[in-house]
Amino acid sequence: MVLESYFRATGTGRRGAFMPYVTAGYPSAGAMPGILGMLAGSGADCVEIGVPFSDPVADGVTIQRASEVALARGGGLAGALRAVQTAARMGLRPVLMSYANPLWQAGLPALARRLADAGAQGVIVPDLPLELAGSWSAAFAEQGLALVLFAAPTTPAARLRQAGRNTRGFLYYVSLAGVTGERRSLPRGLAARLRTVRRIARSPVCVGFGVSTPRQAAAVARVADGVIVGAAVVRRLEGWGRGVEKRRAIARWTASMARAVHGAAYSR
């Protein structure tokens, strides 16, 4: 599995991965190649591409709105697959994020083939519990795709061990008990908790939810294999269509996030 070896290699002491999140079709389908190109040019290593969904229970207002806008403009799985293909061609490592139902309706084996053909490396399903992930993981692994599992601050040690054992690619650690969205500060004790998580899970760990500033990204990157930034990116993308100056500002901010992640010295 490509994603697996990438993160295992990163985990041995190279720099952490910067993984921005975008909702496919937001702010428009036509904007996707430009946005993905900007991410690649600003130093993103991977990109999480979200399939817009009518009922995103794990998402805060920013990503909910993006989902609604993308759906209203005809976005969906097909658009996400096109974005995956574009991202892969640009050398980004695309990971698809979708709630369970759109994937299940597409039929897992067929979907896994389409994803692999498009160049996806992994799949993230926020409402799929690890107890039910086995057969999904197998279907994706068949095509060389990593099914990424989650751990959260509420996850007890035994379950964390199980998640670490069964996840592929990396373990997605949710930084806080809450939904996606920007936060002024990350939970206290996050660094210490992450050290514990890595020790118990014994797999590469990427951290998402709430990471909003270069300072926060750097702090997380010191103790994680990758940093996922969603709402802070998506909020800025609302202005993508408002001229070249706006786009440049978004690119500058994205590059500052990438530098913060890449420049952070590991202290694991």
Binding site: A58, P126, P129, L132, F150, A152, P153, T154, T155, P156
Partner: peptide, 12 residues
């Protein structure tokens, strides 16, 4: 049936 919910809720 099942328990299709985010990990944060699974322990609860």
């Amino acid at each position: 049936g099942g328990q299709f919910a985010p990990e944060t809720l699974q322990p609860a």
